[in-house]
Design a protein around this nucleic acid. Structure first.
Lengths: 337, 337
DNA sequence: TTGTACGCGTTATCAT
DNA sequence: ATGATAACGCGTACAA
């Protein structure tokens, strides 16, 4: 209570004076450089403690030309994309990976026009040392912008167009193929799919995996309808499928949200799962466990994606040239298929 | 392709020289100060365009003593808390509110010991102009730290101990009471509850609302078990309730995740919802729609919480003294009760 | 090992 | 209206 509310924080100069050494020496101690006598070192450290000195990150950033932060940029039409727990996992992964460094995480939603502009400024002003980009649509200007700005950038999910040198992705084709093959192995022959957005690599890759599996199995049946990865859309898609292809006996949904929506519609329509219609999702989110019945799904290591993106970015910032990384998926068998 | 990969960005001095004016004039144009002739102004603006000048935020921050960023700090035991879509919504709300300013959002998980330390440094180094704190447990040192650091701070949810001057919350007591009263109005007399963590204000407040409703209704019945807001825990809690109070005819769960877990257990146990056991949740997340049957729940405006926290913080930073804000909840009637 | 002096790119003060 | 000049707090060549 006796402390003034906002006493000015001590500067390194004051620390040096308090310790009776030069500011350069104090600076050296701070960055634990080797060339400083143990006597001075201790004096400085004591002064730091006594004065409660904390370095000013802004000044340091200006001097070192390093922002001390990286950005996670999430594209998409709507800020509501964040309602998808997927991103929370990515953020958690990135955050934990960043904990081992002294970099901060700034989060950008490039969702509105205003948001796009701000991201552009962020890149051009070099307010961060690197960026991670996610959920880019087909010809999103962001990817171009990031590359032009010369800021180290890694992509979450291979961009559809343009060749991004650095990205972390999962093997979507294979995951989707295995999911579909699982349905085939169950004896299903009229397997429909609810795809993701087809102007993204994920969307196309998972559809391709579905196609590959059908082709390999010699199944001519085709029934697909596009989705946007939301539950609501999954419901609409399932309704559409039921009217257009009432004879279907299985559905591969490109993610769990849509699969959950499909489940509800099937339930309402009186189709039992999995006996009449088997359903497989993709992601392995909590919702796949909660769903009724629990979803068989292609699990992808989302936390790892965030973590590996971060590590790749750190390597990039360090001047290395990391290779793209493809993480594996695993089929989790539950009750829906 | 002809551009050098990393050409040095122009400084304000270079802009000034290019425009044939003093750097002071250029600076004035940048911050559109009034005292500059329209001739020079145009010259500077042209130079800015031609050179592609973008101000250096770090240098500006050092000069103005303003970081140009605010932090959202999320406490909790486990980084997995972010799997809860709740936070995504808060982030989205904060992010959109921030879009109208030129402040960035840095995200901090104060989940590990390492994370706590980093948050501490963040606060003390004044790397941000203000902080928003969420999910603090009972006597979390963070709240004390934030106040001591003298950094503008607003809390998401009233802290349990200590008096936080600035916070945004919802009327948890009332929401819980209305939920329980709804169950009472349905004729239920043996209403159990799955509480949230009792070392948080949310947890206690919702339990209190439950108690109030029962008391008002003259129902002596009491059956409660604690939870931690996860679906998994909701399942365990429901199992516990069923064995200890097999005669219950309704459950008020302190959030949707736990309610969804409870639903699954009830389903397995062969209890039909809502006829045998009515269930009400809290939050109004997507999961409440997906659940089977769809959950009756107390909706809270999560996006608004993020938005209002941000606005309050901005006011605080601007030197105002905003009042705590209590947002309303609304009961959404679906099929589970 | 030690310290001086300059640079980082802005904003802000205070004369003119 | 205008423009030097001094902060802002720290890193770091360079010389000693």
């Amino acid at each position: 209570m006796t402390d003034e509310p906002t006493r000015r924080r001590p500067t390194l100069d004051e620390v040096a004076e308090h310790a009776g050494v030069s500011r350069t020496a104090a600076s050296r101690v701070l960055n634990n450089a080797p060339n400083v006598s143990s006597g001075k070192r201790e004096a400085v450290q004591r002064a730091i403690k006594e004065l409660g000195y904390v370095p000013n990150p802004t000044a340091r950033a200006l001097a070192t030309q390093q922002a001390g932060a990286v950005a996670l940029i999430i594209a998409g039409e709507d800020p509501a994309v964040l309602a998808d727990p997927f991103y929370g996992q990515v953020i958690a992964g990135a955050s934990t990976a960043l904990e081992e460094t002294d970099l901060h995480l700034v989060l950008c939603l490039a969702t509105s026009t205003r948001g796009q502009i701000r991201v552009k400024q962020l890149l051009q002003s070099r307010a961060v040392d690197g960026v991670m980009l996610m959920s880019l649509r087909g010809d999103d200007p962001l990817s171009q912008l990031a590359l032009e700005a010369g800021v180290p950038a890694v992509f979450g999910g291979k961009p559809l167009h343009g060749h991004a040198p650095f990205y972390v992705d999962v093997d979507n084709v294979r995951g989707a193929r295995e999911a579909t093959e699982h349905l085939v192995s169950l004896g299903r022959t009229r397997i429909a799919t609810i795809t993701g957005p087809l102007d993204t690599d994920v969307g196309r890759a998972r559809r391709r995996g579905y196609h590959e599996a059908l082709t390999l199995a010699g199944l001519p049946y085709r029934a697909e309808v596009g989705g946007d990865f939301t539950e609501r859309n999954g419901m609409a898609a399932m309704e559409s499928l039921l009217t257009r292809h009432p004879d279907l006996d299985a559905v591969f949904a490109a993610n769990d949200n849509m699969a959950a929506g499909a489940l509800r519609v099937l339930h309402r329509a009186g189709r039992t799962v999995p006996s009449e219609v088997a359903v497989v999702g993709f992601d392995g989110l909590a919702i796949s466990e909660i769903a009724d019945p629990p979803l068989t799904t292609v699990h992808q290591p989302i936390r790892d994606i965030g973590r590996e993106m971060t590590r790749m970015l750190l390597a990039l910032i360090a001047g290395e040239k990391p290779s793209p990384l493809i993480l594996p998926t695993t089929l989790i068998r539950r009750e829906s298929a």
